[in-house]
Design a protein around this nucleic acid. Structure first.
Length: 139
DNA sequence: CGCATGATTGTTTTG
DNA sequence: CAAAACAATCATGCG
């Protein structure tokens, strides 16, 4: 009985079904420090889940195995269960925002103008433009 | 020897 | 507003 998956949820394997490497051209400008996207609650949960999964299945095949298991488990979780993960994800996002500001700051500082159309003229660019911009007290 | 792929969902990004 | 893309992971396979 499996009847359930009759419909192809064109949402999973369809989008990146050809490999997540969807960069037919990647025309986006090459940002030297473009911060990557913060992990979603699901990824945060995955971090923990992976560890357990590895212990429970030391012979797992590959990420796909954990991914599926995690996905199924994730859907099984309630908001309360996801709450701690979501909360963490939110923190990540906040930090990401901060990182973005520094990234923008640097950019604004390094190249005063030419934010968009910078071919290669700004050779100097941001060499050591403030490695440590803001150091929060570390207790 | 090294990169690409596979699979999950969520957030970020861009048009 | 909507769709696209990419975020981590890690073993495995191909050139």
């Amino acid at each position: 009985m499996k009847g359930g998956e009759s419909k192809a949820e064109a949402t999973s394997t369809d989008q990146r079904l050809k490999t997540r490497g969807r960069k037919p051209g990647k025309k986006t400008k090459k940002d030297p420090n473009q911060p990557k996207r913060p992990p979603s609650a699901f990824f945060v949960f995955l971090e923990d889940f992976r560890k357990e999964f590895n212990l429970a299945n030391p012979n797992n095949k590959s990420v796909a195995t954990v991914g599926k298991a995690a996905g199924a488990r994730w859907k099984s979780m309630t908001e309360e269960d996801k709450a701690p993960y979501v909360a963490k994800a939110e923190s990540r996002k906040t930090e990401y925002l901060k990182t973005m500001q520094q990234y923008n700051m640097k950019l604004a500082n390094g190249t005063s103008r030419g934010e968009e159309d910078d071919s290669d003229k700004s050779k100097s660019e941001v060499d050591e433009a403030g490695s440590e911009e803001e150091e929060e007290d570390d207790d």
